[in-house]
Amino acid sequence: MPDPEAKVPNPRKADLERLRRDLAKEVESIRKALKNPTEEIGGDKVWVGKNARTWHTELDGRHKRLGAQVDKLLPLVDAAIRGEPEKVTASEARTYQKVV
């Protein structure tokens, strides 16, 4: 019978590290998701007038807020990774894997 206190690699930490790698690949495209529409509507080539300016202002604000929120994602995941131990007991690992 295995030692009940035997330590194994932490599967939650491994999942968080995988999430961070995947997210790092996508952050820039998410940050820029509204860039082209914002520039097109604000550039007087697609749409002009009072309503166009209103839409541009709204879209530009959303673009900036999206960028600010995306900039918080990697630090949040990094903090979660730092908070996880390298190893956990085998029973803790099994419990985590059952839940996930």
Rank of each mutant, 00 (worst) to 15 (best):
A6N: 12
A6Y: 09
A6G: 09
K7T: 05
K7S: 09
V8M: 01
V8K: 03
P9K: 11
P9H: 05
P9D: 10
P9L: 10
N10K: 08
N10G: 08
P11Q: 03
P11L: 08
R12Q: 15
D15P: 03
D15N: 11
D15M: 10
L16A: 09
L16C: 08
L16S: 00
E17Q: 13
E17C: 06
E17Y: 04
R18S: 14
R18F: 12
L19E: 06
L19T: 02
R20V: 07
R20L: 10
R20Y: 06
R20W: 03
R21E: 14
D22W: 09
A24F: 02
A24L: 12
K25S: 14
E26I: 00
E26V: 11
V27E: 09
V27C: 13
V27P: 04
E28G: 13
E28S: 13
S29M: 14
S29D: 13
S29A: 12
I30R: 06
R31K: 15
R31F: 07
R31L: 02
K32P: 01
K32H: 13
K32C: 08
A33Y: 05
N36K: 14
N36P: 03
N36F: 01
T38Y: 07
E39Y: 01
E39A: 09
E40H: 08
E40N: 08
E40S: 05
I41T: 06
I41Y: 02
G42C: 02
G42R: 02
G43M: 06
G43P: 01
D44A: 11
D44N: 15
K45T: 13
V46S: 07
V46I: 12
V46Q: 05
W47V: 01
W47F: 14
W47I: 01
W47A: 02
G49I: 07
K50S: 12
N51R: 15
N51Q: 14
A52R: 03
A52K: 05
T54H: 12
T54N: 14
T54Q: 15
H56R: 04
H56T: 04
H56W: 06
T57K: 15
T57R: 14
E58P: 07
L59C: 00
D60C: 00
G61T: 03
G61N: 10
R62I: 10
R62H: 11
R62D: 01
H63F: 11
H63G: 00
K64C: 00
K64G: 01
R65G: 01
G67E: 05
A68G: 09
A68N: 12
A68E: 15
A68L: 10
Q69W: 14
Q69R: 12
D71K: 12
K72L: 15
L73F: 10
L73V: 15
L74W: 02
L74F: 09
L74Y: 05
P75V: 06
P75H: 04
